[in-house]
Amino acid sequence: MKNSNSLFLPEIAKVVSTRQLTAMEKYIELKTIDDREFDFTPGQFVQLSVFGIGEAPISISSSPFNRESIGLCVRRAGDVTSAIHKLEPGSRLGMRGPLGKGFPVKEMRGKDLLFIAGGLGLAPLRSLINYTLQKRDDFARIRILYGAKKPGEILFPDELQTWRERKDIELEITVDTPDQNWTGKSGVITRLMPSLKLEPENTFALIVGPPVMYKYVLLELQIKQIPETNIIMSLERRMKCGIGKCGHCQINGVYVCLDGPEFSYHTLKFLPEAI
């Protein structure tokens, strides 16, 4: 972290561009005012400040290979995220981070990857997916499962289209409640899982979604006999400080902000409060 004195002192970042993704989600691209290069691991997050309103943790959604700026997919959920939605290019805000540990990218090398994204969970996974696509030869088979509630809530449709067109990755999308125009699959994301042919020992499953999703996805992965160490889940908890002090994000003995937010099921199974 850049701050030399107070842990709570954000640096100032400026909004480079914004893009409305859905009714609730907006994509914003940030640079620091001194054009510092970003260095982060997919799965890490930043604490964004709108001064006078407060601070909120947001996971980084852009590829770590783009070092000039970071992109964040912000869902309007509370005061801070609503205030972020009102920002325009040129606006300035506070930023602390990157925080957290992120996905275990080194251990994933050479493996088959199964991405499972529910709703806004695509945002942090997008960073990891783009990372693996940039280093495509480092990984074996890549499959992406993405579930959204409604067709209108699908994030990054253009990017999903380019992923779909690529021959070296497989993508499946499902929506819980389709509309008349929807021609794809429907139903909850776990419906996409039974037909998957996996080499369990050689597969890493990377899961980000709403809390309710994990239990069911986990069950399917256990049926497939994916090793516990290879099931990586990103957890959402209340966060205030982002640096393992304030206590809010604690799950049993671990701090989501400091030790995660991504954890292997091997760790989580010893944390009864986790899932």
Binding site: F8, S49, F51, G52, I53, G54, E55, K240, C241, K245, C246, G247, H248
Partner: peptide, 21 residues
């Protein structure tokens, strides 16, 4: 016990304020 909450408090001028725990 050392858990804390963090919040912003804007002054009445709505331009300056403090972040507190």
């Amino acid at each position: 016990c050392y858990c804390f909450d963090v919040y912003d408090c804007m002054e009445l001028n709505l331009a300056s304020g403090e972040r507190c725990r």
